[in-house]
């Protein structure tokens, strides 16, 4: 089936098998392998991307469902070579170790801040209910999101 999907600002036309998951479309059709796969039951959030600006799990979405829509992946988050404040904060505060959950964490948390720009620590922890990390114990992830939120309050950026 023919689809046209805009990813990170660029439009891609592809003829795909309808059963292809969005995450496989990104990774295998487009070579955007920054989006990872960590489970098969919609739990872990490693595959989180933005669909029309909202966080979604790309393993729980067929590519054909998003025909004509806009996707942003971790590869598209930095603008003009400048890291997004969330990326900066994860780096600054050691919010990652093996890095596998990180793209999903960053995409989920940037989407979350769009709905709640100034969350408490408890709210941040709650917002991560769909993103698992096995390395960091979450402590520095939470700190990074809090720090990014504060920076973004001072200097808003588009996501």
């Amino acid at each position: 089936m023919q689809v046209s999907i805009t990813v990170n600002g660029k439009r891609y036309e592809r003829n795909i098998d309808p059963r292809m998951l969005l995450v496989h479309f990104l990774r295998e059709e487009l070579g955007l392998t920054g989006t990872n796969i960590g489970c098969d039951t919609s739990q872990c959030g490693a595959c989180t991307v933005h669909l029309n600006g909202k966080g979604v799990k790309s393993c729980t979405c067929l590519a054909v469902q998003v025909d004509g829509m806009d996707i942003t992946t971790i590869e598209g988050l930095a603008q003009n070579g400048a890291l997004h404040p969330m990326q900066e904060a994860f780096w600054e505060l050691h919010g990652l170790q093996c890095g596998y959950c990180t793209p999903g964490m960053i995409m989920a948390s940037t989407a979350y801040l769009a709905t709640n720009p100034s969350p408490s620590e408890e709210e941040i922890r709650g917002s991560l209910e769909g993103n698992f990390c096995r390395c960091t114990g979450y402590q520095n992830i939470v700190a990074a999101i809090k720090s990014a939120a504060e920076k973004m309050q001072q200097e808003p950026v588009g996501v």
Partner: peptide
Amino acid sequence: VGDPMVRNR
């Protein structure tokens, strides 16, 4: 229900 991403879809 689910988590923020699940609720979005």
